[in-house]
C-alpha cells in the first residue's frame, strides 16, 4: 500500500523534506489558481450566453452553475493535467490518462452492446425467442434465421475465455481471415496495382517541355523506388544507380510527408488552445 501511495504521489527518489514542501506548495498554488479562475469565469458569465444550458442550475457565490459549466471545468482540468506532462511526468498526468483509458473502454463497451449485439442479433433474432416463446407476446415482424450462424460463431469466439474450448474460437477467426483474404485479393490487385500501373502509363505524354518533364519525373520515380524495394537482385552497377535515385525520391517524399505531419500536429494543438481560450476562459477574440 505504501508502495502505491508513493507512486500515486509521483515522488522522486531521494527528495529532501524541503524539496517536498516546495513541490507541494507549487501544486497547491496551481490548484488554487485553477479553482479561482473557474470561480471568476462563472461569476463573469452570469448565465447570459447563447449556449444551451443543462438542467442543473445552482447558484453558489452568485454564479450560475450548470451541468455544462461543470463539464467545461472538468474538461479544462483534464486538459491542463495532461499538458503538465510537458514539464515532467507526474501524478496528475497519470491519473488523467488512466481515467481517459477507463472512460474510453466503458464507452466502447456500451456502444458495442447497442450497435454490435443488440442491433445485429437481439432485435432481428433473439428478441423473438425471448418475447414470443418465453413471454408469450405478439411481436410484429419475423426473425431472421440466417443470423443463427454468426451467433453461434460469435459464441465460438467467446469460447476463448475457456481454456479447454479455446480451439473453437479458431474456427470463427479462420472464417473472418479467409473471407478477408479472399475478398481482398481481386479488389486490391485491381485498385492498387492495375489501376496504378495503367494510370502511370496513361500519363506518359511528351507534347510540351513541362509535360515531358512531369512524365519523366513520374516514370523515374515509380520505377526507381520499386527497384529500390526489390531486394531479389543485388543493388550494384546500373541497378545500384537507379536504386540510389530511388532513395533521393524517397527522401523528397518523406520530406513532403514530414511537412504535412507538422501541419497536422499543429492543427491538433490549435484546436485545444482555441478551446481553452474561448470555451473555458471565454476571452473575447480580436479580429
Amino acid at each position: 500500500m505504501a508502495d502505491a501511495d508513493n507512486a500515486a504521489a509521483g515522488t522522486g527518489q531521494g527528495e529532501t523534506g524541503r524539496q517536498r514542501a516546495l513541490r507541494l506548495a507549487a501544486v497547491a498554488v496551481l490548484l488554487g489558481t485553477f479553482a479561482a479562475v473557474n470561480v471568476l469565469i462563472f461569476q463573469k458569465e452570469g448565465g447570459h450566453s447563447l449556449r444551451a444550458g443543462g438542467e442543473l442550475v445552482w447558484k453558489p457565490l452568485g454564479a450560475t452553475v450548470t451541468w455544462e459549466g461543470i463539464g467545461i471545468v472538468v474538461a479544462a482540468g483534464l486538459t491542463l493535467a495532461l499538458y503538465s506532462f510537458l514539464y515532467a511526468d507526474n501524478a496528475f498526468f497519470k491519473a488523467a490518462e488512466h481515467l481517459y483509458v477507463g472512460v474510453g473502454l466503458g464507452y466502447s463497451l456500451v456502444l458495442a452492446w447497442f450497435q454490435y449485439i443488440k442491433a445485429e442479433l437481439y432485435v432481428p433474432l433473439v428478441k423473438y425467442w425471448v418475447r414470443e416463446s418465453w413471454l408469450g407476446e405478439q411481436v410484429p415482424g419475423r426473425p431472421d434465421w440466417k443470423l443463427i450462424v454468426p451467433m453461434i460463431l460469435g459464441l465460438f469466439l467467446l469460447a476463448r475465455f475457456v481454456r479447454r474450448l479455446e480451439w473453437m474460437s479458431r474456427w470463427a477467426f479462420a472464417f473472418i481471415i479467409g473471407l478477408g483474404a479472399g475478398m481482398s485479393i481481386p479488389l486490391f490487385i485491381d485498385a492498387q496495382v492495375l489501376r496504378q500501373v495503367e494510370q502511370t502509363i496513361a500519363a506518359v505524354r511528351f507534347d510540351a517541355l513541362l509535360v515531358a518533364l512531369n512524365t519523366l519525373v513520374l516514370l523515374v520515380g515509380v520505377i526507381s523506388v520499386l527497384i529500390y524495394f526489390y531486394f531479389s537482385i543485388e543493388h550494384r552497377g546500373a541497378v545500384g544507380l537507379v536504386s540510389k535515385i530511388g532513395i533521393w525520391f524517397l527522401m523528397i517524399s518523406f520530406g513532403a510527408s514530414f511537412g504535412y505531419t507538422v501541419m497536422g500536429r499543429m492543427a491538433l494543438l490549435v484546436g485545444r488552445v482555441q478551446w481553452l481560450i474561448q470555451d473555458w476562459l471565454r476571452i473575447p477574440i480580436q479580429g
Binding site: Q196, V217, V220, G221, I223, V225
Partner: peptide, 11 residues
C-alpha cells in the same frame, strides 16, 4: 515526385 513514390510504395 511525392505521388510517384507513394504509388511505388502502394504497388
Amino acid at each position: 515526385p511525392n505521388m510517384a513514390v507513394k504509388r511505388a510504395i502502394l504497388i
